[in-house]
């Protein structure tokens, strides 16, 4: 469902010149699977997911989603994914229902299907009471629910979540994770980025540890623990990152400090 091959992305930056945000990243995700991208802030997770959502164009490499290349067929890719991140806010001047309905129409869903689908989604996510509430009057948790509803309104086969729980309290975060688990049960292909170990251990079938634009290692949680002989995921994560930083210093690769 998702195939990413040698994806690279570099930016021009006023202070630092050319910055490589992503360097030859490759992975693939199957339907019914949750793939976790684990990395500290600024590791390149968001850049990678933005390329997959066609918002950014890769400098080199290829990403194919649901059979469509992100560079050659961006419209088809967008029609087949649901994307949610900290940057995909909701409109202040629309109610929950209007917002989700509007996006449903953008995806070209016919009206009767859309209305029944909206009823289902609002029931499953328990959003009935915020149905006619304006975006500006919602709490963070409510907004997150609307975002999830917006993400799945067109029933896409591929779902991309970029740090969906960041900034949420425990209750809401739990609800979001449950929603993701529910979607996995429906056979969706899900990619999920986070910097929280517990979420990975709990949710993900496979994980990739990403740091400074490179994937350091990937596999199931058990595989990783066995390979590095470290039963604690958190320790394993730090170990990988420190080792990579040391290699960079030793190798004298002139990448500027922390992003």
């Amino acid at each position: 469902m998702i195939e990413v091959n040698d994806l690279s992305k570099s930016f021009e930056d006023l202070k630092r010149g050319s910055v490589t945000a992503l360097e030859r990243v490759s992975f693939d995700v199957q339907p019914g699977e949750i793939f976790g991208l684990l990395g500290p802030n600024g590791a390149g997770k968001t850049t990678c997911l933005r390329i997959m959502s066609t918002v950014l164009k890769p400098t080199s490499g290829r990403a194919v989603i649901a059979g469509y290349d992100v560079v050659d067929h961006p419209e088809e890719v967008r029609a087949n994914i649901g994307f949610m991140s900290g940057n995909t806010g909701i409109y202040d001047r629309m109610t929950a229902w209007e917002m989700v309905e509007y996006y449903g129409r953008l995806y070209g869903i016919d009206e009767p299907t859309l209305q029944s689908r909206l009823d289902d989604i609002f029931a499953v996510l328990q959003m009935e009471e915020i149905r006619d509430l304006l975006g500006s009057k919602m709490s963070t948790g409510m907004k997150q629910k609307v975002s999830i509803a917006r993400t799945i309104v067109h029933d896409p086969p591929v779902l991309i979540f970029d740090e969906p729980t960041s900034g949420l309290d425990v209750l809401v975060a739990r609800a979001v994770l449950q929603a993701i688990e529910y979607l996995k049960g429906q056979g969706k292909c899900i990619i999920f980025s986070t910097h929280i170990m517990r979420e990975v251990e709990k949710l993900c079938d496979r994980v990739a540890v990403i740091h400074k634009g490179r994937i350091l290692d990937s596999g199931t949680v058990e595989e990783l623990e066995a390979r590095h002989n470290q039963p604690d995921m958190e320790e394993l994560f730090f170990e990988l990152i420190h080792r990579h930083d040391h290699e960079l210093v030793a190798g004298g690769v002139g990448i500027a400090e922390g992003v």
């Binding site: 419209e75 940057n87 995909t88 806010g89 409109y91 070209g108 917006r150």
Partner: peptide
């Protein structure tokens, strides 16, 4: 500013 730009960009509209 309101953080809805990316929401719009990922819609199927070109």
């Amino acid at each position: 500013e309101r953080g809805t730009m990316e929401t719009l960009l990922i819609s199927p509209a070109t």
